[in-house]
């Protein structure tokens, strides 16, 4: 057999020049070593978003939690309290409906709704597109409310300066250890619906301890958007971060 092309000539003829009457292409098998980052396109877009927001002096805050932990309520409470201190804008992310955007619009803040359809997280390209619809020149603090989900959003850098996770006391105190990835990507952690603490079994020290294990420098807040308890220390944190961004 021809040991170059395997074309079946007898052994004695293999060293003789011969015509091929089969597919003349000789092939060889190779391993292409690539090491391509599958998140590279998202990360490049995220860096661009961050730089763009920075140019406008906008501090962008990505809020992540399971559905119903109180992301929109926290934005409402914070945006209202910041009147006269920082101008707030909001990007809302949901699978369906513009209900959250309507709530923010009713308070008079600029808002853009991203409706993801079936996608379980926001990504940097979606945020980039949304930024075209917001008056960045008149915003100083931008909240990006992610799709309610404690798993997928953690992996996607949106180009925000801060990533935060909310956990409500009604969800249980075991969630940090159960969803470590999202907490590992966060800079702050808010325990929400603090006013309901007397009515539920929730050991607040436990998620705080577990969050510190995952991320030693995670800032932690306990607050209630409804009663206002604890909101001021979160506000002060945001004001300090905004000041540091533009210093």
């Amino acid at each position: 057999m021809c040991d170059t092309c395997g074309c079946g000539l007898p052994e004695e003829a293999k060293n003789q020049a011969h015509e091929h009457n089969h597919d003349p292409r000789h092939t060889h098998r190779e391993e292409a070593v690539l090491y391509r980052n599958l998140l590279a396109a998202n990360e490049a877009q995220a860096r661009e978003n961050r730089a763009h927001l920075m140019e406008h002096g906008v501090l962008a805050v990505n809020l992540m939690s399971s559905p119903g932990a109180g992301k929109t309520s926290l934005i409402e409470a914070v945006a209202g309290s910041l009147a006269g201190k920082l101008r707030v804008g909001v990007i809302e992310g949901d699978l369906a409906t513009d209900r959250d955007a309507e709530r923010i619009k009713a308070l008079g803040f600029p808002v853009w709704q991203i409706t993801t359809g079936s996608t379980c997280h926001l990504d940097a390209a979606m945020v980039h597109e949304a930024l075209h619809h917001l008056p960045l020149g008149s915003i100083e603090l931008l909240f990006v409310e992610n799709v309610g989900n404690l798993v997928c959003p953690g992996l996607y850098d949106l180009g925000c300066h801060l990533n935060g996770v909310l956990l409500s006391v009604t969800e249980g105190d075991d969630k940090v250890a159960k969803y470590p990835v999202i907490f590992g990507h966060a800079q702050f952690f808010c325990i929400t619906k603090w006013d309901l603490l007397p009515y539920v079994t929730f050991d607040a020290a436990k998620p705080q301890r577990e969050a510190r294990i995952l991320k030693g420098d995670l800032k932690t807040f306990s607050l209630s958007a409804k009663s206002g308890e604890g909101v001021s220390s979160f506000l002060n944190y945001l004001l300090a971060e905004r000041a540091a961004l533009t210093a």
Binding site: H28, A32, L39
Partner: peptide
């Protein structure tokens, strides 16, 4: 991270013809 590390593939060499 998550990476495409490698592909194992057949590629064509220069078109054949006569060879030894």
């Amino acid at each position: 991270g998550i990476f495409l590390t490698s592909l194992e593939l057949d590629v064509a060499e220069a078109a054949g013809g006569n060879h030894v």
